[in-house]
Every structure is written in C-alpha cells, then in structure tokens.
Design a protein around this nucleic acid. Structure first.
Lengths: 331, 331
DNA sequence: AAAGCTTCTGTGAACGTGCACAGTAATGCG
DNA sequence: CGCATTACTGTGCACGTTCACAGAAGCTTT
C-alpha cells in the first residue's frame, strides 16, 4: 500500500493541499476548525511529509553533514567525538534536521565530501578536527555555511568555531605544578600542526617563561605509544624532572608506563598532568589529574553557530569556553 | 548562480535529458560519442545529480539510518562504535548511500526514529546495541530492511545480525584460566538483558560447569564503577578467588582498582581477564589480557547483510564471527 | 526487397511538495 | 451603508529527475 500524500490528508480533512501545507509549515492563517480536521486526518492516515518533494521546491535538504577529518586509524580514539555526535544529533533533531556522517581521511574521501556539499545535499557543514591547511577548507568556501568544533587554523580561510580555551587549560595545569613547588616541569605536546598541539604549549610557556627550554619539551602525536616514547626521551635528556604536563590523557597513560619502567613514583617523584579528562584518566594508575574541556557546551555552541548562519546571520564570532582543572592522584 | 541541472548537461552535450540520465544510471544503451560528450559536459558544468528529485521518482532516499539505542550517558563509552561508524560510512559510500545518525534513548527519540523510517526517509536501518524487547523492534517490522550489529534477542521479532561469538570468547578466557591452573575462578557479567551479558556468562558456565556457582558470579552494568563494586562484592563473598573473568575491559579496569585496594597482586594473587580489547586494556596497570572481537568484520558483515536485503534478498542468515584471546600481563 | 533485430535517442508524464496569487467571507471603521 | 481590512482557502506552477514508450537508424536474416 502506498504512503499517504498531502493530497490524501487534504481529502480526508475536507480541505485543500494548500491549507494542509500551511498547517505543516506553521503559517498562521489556518482556521481552528481546519486545524483539528487536518490533525485528525494526519494521525488517521499516518501521514509523514515527503522530504524529497519538499527539498525539491524549497532548495533545502534538511540535513547537516558532519565531516570527520581524522586519519582513519585514529578516528574516535578520542572519545570526545561521542559527545559531539550525541549533542549534535539532539540539537539538530529539534529543528528537524538530520545528521549525515562523512569521512575525509584521504583525497578520495575529500572529493566525495566536496561533491556532496556543492551538489547541494546539505544545508550546513560541521567540521571536526580539521587540520591546518586542509584543502577541504578552500573547497568549502562557497556553498552552505560551515563551522568547526575546535579551532581551525587556516591560511586565509577563516571558519567560525567553538572551542575550549586550550591555552588557559595549559596555564591552569602548569600553575598548579608551580603551586605544588615543582621546579623542573617538562611538557609532552601534541602534533604542532593542530590547535591543541600549539596552544597547549603556548599556555605552558606563558607560565614558565624562559624556564620552558627545549630540553624540557618533547612532542607526541596523541597516541599512547608516542607519550611513552616522549617520556622516555625526556627522562634521558633531563633526569631530574619532577613534573610533566602531557597534552592528552592518552599520551599521559603512555608517560605513566614509561615512568613506571624507569622506577619513578607518581606523584612522589614526578607529578603527571593530562588533558581532556577522558575516560582513560580514570583507568590509569594512579588516576590522572587533568584538564576538563566543556565538551557538551563546545558541541552545543558549535551547532548553535551553524544554525545561526543557516538562519541568515552574516557573521558570527568564535566561541571560546573555559577549561577546568580536575585534581586526582597523579599530581 | 544556479546549480546546473540535467537539462544544462544535456544541452551542453547536445543530447537529451534521457541520454544523460541513462549514462548516469549505467544503462548500456549510450553511444560512445554521446558518452564522451556528456562526460565532458558534466565536468565542465560541475553537474551533481539532485538527490531530492531522484528520490521523488525512484522512491529511494539514498540514505541508511544508524540507530543508537544506548541510553545517552553511556553512549560511546564503548569505543567499538567508532569502528562500526567508520566501516559503515565507507562501505555505504561505495554504493553512494549516506549514513544518517539517530538516537533512540528515550520514548520521544524512538518515536522520531519510527516516524523517520516509516515516512520513507531511509532505505535501510542499522540498529546498534538494541536491547531485548525494545519497542522499536516491533515498530520496525514493516518498512525498509533492518539489521543489527550485535545479536538482538527479541520475543517474536527476529532481525538479522552480525556478531562476535561471545560465548566462544568467554570459553576461551575461562579455559585459559583453567590451563593456568587457577582453581577459584569468578566472573563479573554485564547486564543480563543484553546478549553480551547473557552469552559471556554462558561461555563461562560451559567450561566450569557446576563449579560456576552463584557465589562466584557478580553483575555489573558495563561501567568502570560497577566493575569495581562487583569485584569488592566478590572479594567479600569469596576471598580465596584466584582469577576473575570480567565481561568488559572497562569493568575490568574497575576490578583492578578494587583488587589493588584490597592488596591483591595481579596476576600473582588474582588473574584478571577482560573482554573487548578496547584501548583501555592498554592503559591499565598491568595491561589487560582480554578477548578481541573482530569489530571491523562485524561491521562489514552487518552492512553486507543490509545491502543484501536492500538488493532484494528475501532472507539472510545471521553471521557469527570468532573471537581471539589476547594475552597481556594481567593473566 | 521486405522484415526483423539491435542499438541508440528524444519526449511526455509523474513523483509530492511549497509558494505566489487570486479569490471569498467576515469583520471593523468612518 | 460603503469600503477597507483581516482571516482564511483553493489552484496552478515549478522544482529536477527517472521511466515507459515511441521512434529512427543501421545491420542481419528471410
């Protein structure tokens, strides 16, 4: 049996298509009598609007595409995505928008995304963890509004975003170490082509000034293994370290393993601070002192920015949200 | 400037709409000359097919909806989702299908999903971690094909699925313990209304037979906190435990904390085995011996089943994939 | 040479909706 | 009472595509 159309509803309610359409789209000019008749007809027939037909005439698709730019293997190692996805679905659903997921790991993926978006299949684009200078950014300059969750540092292309105040978070942790009386404070950073990599180091340097020498800084790539490697490197280079700020919890878990292997006690010999407050921070031994990002708010604000742009706001300001120090046992 | 339509392409190539449409849809009756002309016209104009218009006439939407049934808070605590999402996007993209995400946490969500699916907005449904007796299952009996990643135990409603052989995995771990010479082997299960909760306990009981007494079994809810609680409970009840099989890595991390608090050494005093081989298994101390599920294959097979049904296969058999014991330091 | 294939092409109709417009009835106002 | 205004309703058209059909051209068979 065929699905009911707006004609069927109109016929059942004894009105015309136009009136049903008006009710559906919130037009004020619908008489109370027509209103109840139509509502009854809708529930009786089980009518659901045909999005394709609507799209065809409104030139809107009713969907937002979330583009995940992480290289495939790493995707979602970071559980932050879960919050972002959940919050996005929820907020978009309220506006009757659906969330379509796309990958942008390699060149083929990226081309697909561009085709999709420029083909008019989405009303908005929600970028996630897009790297600096990603060609996608330029390709997306025309087309529907795009925003990013997390800062995105492009050359010319500026894209609105909501993000945590990464630099503040790094300062909070570093200041906490200083307050504890630690003197030789090292840092393991993330990749230096990501905002998290750059800004967390900046915050560290803000507090330590000239004391933040390159001997005290090692670089990782967000993975646990890289954290372990970087920690080993630091210990070899500067054995008298008494604190280390690691730019992610996952890397901090690796650092803990390296410290344990080197016979250092945490936090007695070396204080360890992470970043993210991800679930892993609770399963390490000892549980990690870390910096919590307001993930839900970040997601919320990102979507809010996108919706504002879709609603016609010509320009929106980036949103930067404060982080919070979470003290556990590692420092 | 307006987006080019199939008319524009046809005009530019000097043919008619029909011919362009045939080329686009892989009809064999297109002359070589027309073919090259159209292909040139497409790339010159930057034409992308309008899905809405196509949907309208084909009655297909070109999208698959993934329904996430976890209660919101827990969603994605399990990083398995990431693989599933990634693989699904990738496989669907090959068929030019896009993946739409929906939540089904509460009643309102579920109604939304049903409206969406029965409204004909999706060509297929991909269920994730749907609980036994979920009302969604009945509601989805009519409509487009639906499959599940992970077994779903309904009353009457049977739904095709691909899953790991959970029972086998539990047997593997339990047999490993037995082989190590452990005598008092306990288990912490998941919630008993989930396949993972039920089947992992079954496998445990398969091996231990009458030795699997209720004194040696405690229940958790997949969270780390519940694992810690259950472990404490077990130690109180049966202090001479020398091994414990925990039905998830996250709960196992909790169990490790409880064992440490009780002064038990792992694996010397108590061997600990997890399940999932999730990232957390590497960040615990000691790293967890666990059971690896073939996540990528599970996802792949799930999508394959769905595509088969969409292509008209009347009936498909569930796919059950073997698990693998991963030995680390905790046992 | 006629008939029948095969290969290829163009055309009209239909899919279900929103929107602009025209039109009608009821109400308010001078 | 006449006229403007408000509240509401119905209709035709357009959106961009696929599909069924009809038809043209070239080739093979009778």
């Amino acid at each position: 049996m065929k699905r009911p159309t707006i004609h069927d509803v109109a016929a059942a309610a004894g009105v015309s298509r136009g009136t049903v359409s008006r009710l559906l789209n919130g037009d004020k000019y619908v008489s109370p009598a027509a209103r109840v008749a139509i509502e009854r007809a809708i529930s009786e027939t089980g009518y659901v609007v045909n999005r394709a037909a609507r799209s065809l005439v409104t030139q809107r698709t009713g969907s937002i595409v979330m583009v995940l730019s992480e290289p495939h293997e790493k995707l979602f190692e970071d559980p932050n995505y879960s919050t972002l996805i959940r919050v996005s679905i929820r907020m978009l659903a309220e506006r009757d928008l659906s969330l379509v997921m796309m990958l942008a790991g390699d060149e083929g993926d990226r081309e697909r995304v561009v085709r999709y978006v420029r083909g008019g299949h989405a009303d908005g684009v929600l970028l996630v963890s897009t790297h600096a200078g990603d060609p996608l950014l330029d390709a997306l300059r025309t087309g529907p509004p795009a925003v990013s969750c997390g800062a995105v540092i492009g050359r010319e292309t500026v894209i609105p975003y909501a993000a945590a105040d990464e630099r503040l978070g790094a300062r909070q942790m570093t200041e906490y170490f200083v307050g504890l009386g630690r003197r030789r404070i090292a840092m393991i950073t993330g990749p230096m082509d990501t905002p998290g990599g750059i800004q967390r180091l900046e915050g560290f340097a803000d507090v330590l000034g000239r004391k933040a020498t390159s001997k005290l800084i090692a670089h990782g790539d967000w993975t646990q293994a890289s954290g372990e490697r970087a920690m080993t490197e630091l210990l070899g280079r500067t054995p008298d370290i008494d604190a280390v700020f690691v730019a992610s919890d996952l890397m901090a878990a690796g650092a803990l393993a390296a410290l344990r292997a080197a016979g250092r006690r945490v936090p007695d010999d070396v204080a360890v601070g992470g970043f993210d407050d991800s679930p892993v921070a609770l399963s390490t031994h000892p549980p990690l002192t870390t910096i919590r990002q307001p993930l839900a708010e970040m997601a919320q604000e990102t979507v809010r920015l996108l919706l504002a742009l879709i609603d016609g706001a010509g320009h929106v300001e980036p949103v930067i949200l404060p982080t919070e120090l979470v003290i556990r046992d590692s420092a």
